[in-house]
């Protein structure tokens, strides 16, 4: 680990020397990063590298082998269930699939956490929900079921649900994956605007380089179980790390080989 992460005083989440493995398979090897308050931080990397796992570790859904995750100074993995639930009321997560509850309509989906946690009257909840839906441009879909929405609309509805309780931090898991250019543009705009308007701390996990570089304030790039680079988008574009260049430029072959490791081609063909 040759990247020393400066511990910023204003960071909301601190990940320190995190190790995580599934069975024999090592996923993270000594990862450290910090998420500054009120900024959009992106974590990029090729698919299958465990970016979603990192979010789940930060949300306390998975327990690391070593290292710690601090949320506002509190260790996410060494606290009581009640403390963890209290922390989770301050953060929220936008899942890749949207994860809207399929057995209730869009309105009830957005109202769900409010009804559970806020203790507000139904009248006020109704107003809040309609405001959140308006913010993502889906007020007209309030009485529709999630299955009646398109993929992009589902993700926006899920975003409205994620910000319903006015959390301090929103984690976006691959928000742009599988979206057409228009809904991608809408999502990029929404994430940026919400972040600025609500002073949200945003963590975006993605492999869509251009979109991420256009909205992020700070970027971490992961490859090969480690963080290989971090900096502002401008710094990364001008970096000369070959692995980073390949990823950002989207070149098919480079330090990350095009070929999966195999026996010698000629030898295998001829026998």
């Amino acid at each position: 680990m040759n990247h020393k992460v400066p511990i910023e005083p204003k960071s909301l989440v601190e990940v320190r020397n995190l190790d995580f493995s599934r069975g024999e398979h090592i996923i993270f090897d000594d990862i450290s990063l910090s998420i500054p308050k009120g900024k959009v931080t992106a974590i990029m990397g090729p698919s299958g590298i465990g970016k979603t796992t990192l979010l789940k570790l930060m949300g306390g859904q998975l327990i690391p082998d070593a290292g710690q995750v601090l949320f506002d100074g509190q260790d996410v993995h060494r606290c009581s269930r009640e403390q963890l639930f209290n922390m989770r009321k301050r953060m929220s997560m936008l899942f890749q699939s949207g994860a809207l509850f399929t057995d209730m309509n869009v309105f009830d989906n957005v109202a769900f956490a409010l009804r559970e946690h806020s203790g507000l009257s139904e009248k006020i909840i109704r107003r809040i929900v309609l405001m959140k839906l308006e913010a993502v441009g889906l007020r007209g879909t309030a009485s529709m079921m999630p299955s009646e929405l398109s993929g992009g609309m589902q993700r926006r509805a899920a975003l409205a649900r994620a910000i319903a309780l006015e959390p301090e931090m929103v984690m976006y898991d691959e928000p742009f994956a599988g979206q057409d250019p228009v809904s991608m543009g809408v999502l990029v705009k929404l994430i940026r605007e919400l972040s600025d308007a609500l002073q949200l701390t945003s963590v975006v996990i993605s492999h869509d380089v251009q979109e991420v570089l256009s909205i992020a304030d700070y970027v971490y790039v992961m490859a090969d179980k480690r963080i290989i680079a971090h900096g502002t988008p401008l710094e990364l574009k001008n970096a000369d790390n070959p692995q980073l260049k390949q990823f950002i430029g989207g070149e098919p072959d480079g330090p990350v080989p095009f070929h999966f490791p195999a026996e010698d081609y000629q030898k295998e063909l001829v026998g």
């Binding site: 949300g59 009321k89 997560m93 899942f95 994860a99 399929t102």
Partner: peptide, 18 residues
């Protein structure tokens, strides 16, 4: 099973609901 595979269960957990 479907709720789990569409991350609805994780989503509940992240909303601090068991």
């Amino acid at each position: 099973g479907l709720m789990k595979s569409t991350e609805q269960l994780s989503s509940l957990e992240m909303m601090a609901i068991d």
